[in-house]
Simulated assay, not measured.
Amino acid sequence: MAHTAHWVPLNVKHHGGLMWQRFTAYHFAQHITQASLAEGELRHAAASFPIGFTQTASGWQAVALLGLRDEQNLIVDSQGRWRAAYVPAALRSHPFGLHAEYPEKLCIDQHSPFVVARLDAEPFFNQHGELASFPQQVLAFLQQREAGCQRVAQQLDALANAKLLTPWQPEGYQGSAPLYQIDEPAWKALSAEQMGLFWQLGAVPLVYAQLISQRQLGVLRSLLQRPTTSPPEANASRPLSEWQEAFSSEERYQWPDPS
């Protein structure tokens, strides 16, 4: 059942009696239309989803479009199976996350069904009241991802200041969040010197990931026509524990091994 994430920092006083479970399906993401992307996962995402840019109160971000209207995720079927080759890192880490007000603390989605008060799950804390080993690794994973998101924000800010972003209304898109794309004619008109500055900033891969990813709009539109209860595809039949390691070739975005 869909729910709204409510991030709270882990605290042994309030959460010492709770544990967490690894999810086995993506029902929790059925209402998530956009997933923010970090720098290191752009090329993986571009092969699976359209990438757009959004501007929020906290700055620019690159997002994977998972649906064409609010509260819609076409990538998750009715049985919670993920219907794409890549899962954004922001979703792989559920029920853990970060909150802007607590950048040094590991947070949990307090509304997640995978935060439980049972003894057969995995602990948040060790016997000393400190984060257990695996949650410590998750915190490092999320902080590395956040650093990648900040680099994307800086690159998009520079592109926006150079008037290289333009509003984007993909065919069939009915979401309430305004989208932006690379202004391709303006990008191609840059001088070699100007292009060199964006190379130095690391923004060129971001530009081409967004342009190339627009081909994936057809995938979303085709999923609108596909039954959500269709038999699982080849990659959807793998155990989820295998997926979480296989979905990224970048070590920094691999889900930590609990062993």
Rank of each mutant, 00 (worst) to 15 (best):
A192I: 10
R221C: 13
I75R: 02
N126H: 12
D70K: 03
L179Q: 04
D183F: 10
G80W: 01
Q244N: 05
V87M: 07
D257Y: 14
V207L: 03
S248E: 11
W60T: 08
W243P: 12
L201A: 04
L66S: 07
P256T: 03
L98E: 02
Q210Y: 14
Q21Y: 14
R83A: 15
W199R: 13
D183Y: 15
E250K: 07
M19F: 08
Y102T: 05
L37D: 01
Q210L: 12
Q155Y: 10
L142Y: 00
V219F: 11
E104Q: 07
A5Q: 07
S112K: 07
A186T: 07
M195W: 06
L164Q: 08
L164S: 11
F198W: 03
L190K: 07
S133G: 10
P50A: 11
F141T: 00
A121L: 12
H94R: 06
Q150M: 12
R118I: 15
F247T: 09
A192F: 12
P88A: 03
P239K: 09
L165C: 10
V138A: 06
A121C: 15
H99G: 12
Q150R: 15
P258Y: 08
L240N: 15
S222M: 11
S58C: 00
Q174N: 11
Q72A: 11
R81K: 07
R226Y: 09
A47H: 13
N235R: 06
M19N: 15
A186Y: 12
S222H: 08
V63R: 04
A153D: 02
Q181E: 06
P113D: 06
S241K: 10
D77H: 00
S93D: 01
F23Y: 14
G67K: 07
F124Q: 04
A140I: 02
T54H: 01
F247W: 12
L223A: 08
Q72R: 10
V76P: 02
E122K: 03
D157C: 01
L159P: 10
F134G: 01
A85L: 08
E41F: 10
L224G: 05
K105M: 10
F247N: 08
G196S: 04
A117G: 06
N235G: 11
Y208T: 09
D120W: 12
L201M: 05
P205N: 04
S191T: 06
F114E: 14
H3F: 13
M195N: 06
W20H: 13
E104C: 04
T229G: 00
S112H: 08
S191D: 05
Q225M: 13
